[in-house]
Amino acid sequence: MEPIMIKNAIALLLLAAVGAIFVSLLAGYMPDEQLNLTARYYAERTAQDIGTANIVTAIVVTYRGLDTLGEVTVLFISAAIVGLVLAQGRLPTNVPGSPQQPRVPVGELLSTGSRLLTPLILLLGIYVFVNGHLTPGGGFQGGAIIASGMLLLLLADPLKHFSHRLIDVIESISGLLFVGIGVLGLLYAGGFLDNRLLPIGTLGELFSAGVIPLIYSLIGLKVGSEFSSMLASLSETEEA
């Protein structure tokens, strides 16, 4: 196959060029010994201005809060597109050549175990996003964990129909509240998504850092329901 050979040769040539750039980058790289200006500002001011123990959270939710709003929007749009693409104009499923086999039923051990574990996983997700300002983690990770719990439900009982309505309602309400808190910050505190809407409190307690735990919980719920709806629309393509 000549064209494939040529294609592979071009690919290898391209890779060699990119690799050369990477090697020169690596050879010239010297790790910093001091924090740069931005990082120094964040390190010095976060504790008193924002009140979060986790500086990454302060950057994600407050300093660059608008970006996070955009990120959540992008996720929402991609979840919507996944649903839309998979929902429209599907072919009949029993195409000749792919005999439709009945699904293998779930074993008793898995169904009992998943009933027991799903609540624990959901609680772990809640822990991760409520403590986002103190420990590693936050809304996105917690949302992913909650979606994993939903996935376990889906696996243990494939025929159970996912309540798309409930997920949509949770998703829109938390999104609206997120923007609402941002606007309230504009009205009553320093600016859009300013966390000093509520008192900052003492560093290291659960109720501290103003509205950050609240915002991260809303992001967690929103992201969790977005991921869940993605999973559900990918897994339900046969029934639809």
Binding site: V104, L117, I145, L151, L155, P158
Partner: peptide
Amino acid sequence: ALLSFLGVIVIARYLERGL
């Protein structure tokens, strides 16, 4: 600890054609 469990279960269900 959660992920090792879920990953194995998803793959096992895929293998036995239950997904």
